[in-house]
């Protein structure tokens, strides 16, 4: 069967959920080969998971060069693999690092590159939402080996346990790929909540919260739902919530089963990051707020009354 390369999305070896989604999608196109690229000793943490989600083969690349420099080494290794394996397609997550890696690998292999795919047919026709999701296009790669970056949460992951064969890659990276050196990694926030782009439920807060400490209301609701916490730019700009949690055109794009907007007006730049959510709930005291145009369920009211009550109700129903 035709080989499909899947670039494993992971944090220090811990696979991200989108990896399972990519493997599931790859199985509809051919036989998935996972490509694991990371620092020495990191693959052990991903091995089991990749087998569980149906990788037929795993290319294992572990090297300090892959961990210590920005994107270029991974792109080089991926491009070499594209040339030697000659797969029918290459799938990566549409996350910042992976899409940069995919783009550079596509440039090196003179292949076409599509990003933000939310669906893919066996004929490799991709569905994408463009212009902030307002237009749906079908497109396909016309040149080389299709390299396609897929949005997290666009396929439901299904397990398909197996025993993949493993091939160790010899990592030799050129000097020109080792010029942007990562000298330190600083962790600023680790909430224990799900990743924003991967979460099934996202609860976001905006300027309506009035102050940073009031984000506690949003967090409590999020925790009762097992959700990730997002924020509008007004909230991140005010320093009420970390920038990494911003949803929108210049923040994260999310596509969860449920998006709850609390005290967010629904500016076009905010919508661009959340309007493909399956179900949208909005809480806003202004009945004219544009967010209500998107809402499946909109509640016109004071968030300080509504949100605590909602949290209690969710807890009660558990």
């Amino acid at each position: 069967m035709a080989e499909v390369l899947v670039l494993v999305e992971h944090a220090d070896g811990e696979p991200k959920k989108v990896t399972a989604e990519l493997l599931t999608l790859a199985r509809t196109l051919g036989e998935p080969s996972a490509v694991f690229l990371g620092g020495p000793g990191t693959y052990a943490k991903a091995k089991e998971y990749l087998a569980q989600y149906g990788a037929a083969k795993v290319y294992v690349g572990e090297s300090d060069d892959l961990a210590d420099y920005v994107v270029a080494p991974a792109a080089e290794v991926l491009a070499k693999l594209i040339a030697s394996a000659s797969p029918v397609a290459v799938l990566t997550a549409a996350t910042p690092d992976a899409r940069e890696t995919a783009a550079r690998a596509a440039a090196k292999s003179d292949s076409g590159f599509l990003w933000d795919a939310v669906g893919l047919t066996p004929e490799l026709v991709a569905t994408q939402g463009i212009f902030g999701g307002s237009t749906i296009v079908q497109s396909h790669v016309t040149k080389g080996i299709p390299v396609i970056a897929v949005r997290p949460n666009s396929t439901a992951a299904e397990a398909a346990p197996g025993t993949p064969t493993e091939e160790q890659l010899t990592i030799e990276v050129s000097d020109v790929a080792k010029t942007a050196k990562i000298v330190d990694r600083v962790v600023e926030a680790k909430s224990g909540r799900p990743d924003l782009t991967e979460a099934q439920i996202v609860v976001s807060g905006g300027r309506g919260l009035g102050a940073g400490e009031n984000f506690a209301l949003v967090e409590k609701l999020a925790d009762s739902l097992g959700a990730a916490v997002g924020a509008s730019r007004a909230a991140t700009d005010a320093g009420w919530y970390p920038h990494q949690n911003q949803v929108g055109q210049t923040g994260k794009t999310v596509s969860p089963q449920l998006y709850v907007a609390v005290g967010i007006s629904g500016a076009i730049q905010h919508r661009a990051g959340m309007q493909t959510s399956k179900t949208i709930v909005a809480i806003n005291k202004d009945p004219e707020a544009p967010i209500f145009e998107l809402a499946d369920f909109g509640l016109v009211g004071d968030l300080f009354q509504v949100v605590p009550q909602l949290t209690d109700e969710v807890e009660k129903r558990k």
Binding site: F297, V300, D302, L310
Partner: peptide, 14 residues
């Protein structure tokens, strides 16, 4: 969608 005005039971309605 459904738009509802809070009558004191908004949280429960959601």
């Amino acid at each position: 969608g459904t738009i509802v005005k809070d009558e004191g039971d908004g949280g429960a309605k959601i």
